[in-house]
């Protein structure tokens, strides 16, 4: 009879759980899987040229003192189309953007660029998602901000919008 407190235990556990559920509901998990490479050196990768008139991109391109964006995209990805005008704006501001196209074909990419414009300095073809996996990228579009030493400063998951431009510029400059 003195052990009555034990009967309150289920209630306490339940209240705790419900509190957690509440937090999970109010602040739902973003579901985005962030790359663990942020703050680290960009790992070795190689994405051969996708277009006849543009070079591909590989890890050696990134430690030459100039900060860049590394954009993971695909011609078959709807949201990537929405992002291109913003990338073109960034390009006009003097930001160098390299693209890695996932599961793509040169002819599809050519059509994609003809229709939407080409904001990239280099476009690499990533067959089999090898480069994507070495970045820890989980989908398209994703953009990595790389500093002049080839370190990953930040990762932007999803479409870049105009509101993101100042932040991206600041991070590029700060690096």
């Amino acid at each position: 009879m003195t052990r009555k407190w034990i009967f309150w235990l289920p209630l306490i556990v339940t209240v705790g759980l419900f509190f957690t559920f509440l937090i999970a509901l109010i602040r739902p998990s973003d579901r985005a899987i962030e790359s663990q490479l942020v703050g680290q050196q960009l790992p070795a990768f190689e994405a051969p040229a996708a277009m006849a008139d543009q070079p591909g991109t590989r890890s050696q391109d990134y430690a030459d003192g100039k900060p860049r964006l590394l954009n993971v995209f695909a011609s078959w990805c709807g949201p990537c189309v929405a992002e291109i005008p913003v990338l073109l704006q960034l390009q006009a501001m003097g930001v160098e953007i390299n693209g890695v196209a996932i599961h793509d074909r040169p002819e599809d990419l050519a059509g994609f660029f003809a229709q939407n414009g080409n904001p990239y300095a280099r476009v690499g073809l990533d067959q089999g998602g090898r480069a994507q996996m070495s970045f820890g990228s989980a989908g398209v579009p994703e953009t990595f901000i790389i500093d002049g030493q080839g370190r990953v400063v930040d990762q932007h998951i999803g479409v870049i919008t105009e509101e993101d431009i100042p932040d991206i510029l600041a991070k590029l400059r700060g690096s």
């Binding site: 899987i33 962030e34 790359s35 663990q36 490479l37 790992p43 996996m133 070495s134 970045f135 820890g136 989980a138």
Partner: peptide
Amino acid sequence: WLVNRYGQWI
């Protein structure tokens, strides 16, 4: 190798 890129989640 994968955990270092995608985190424990994977």
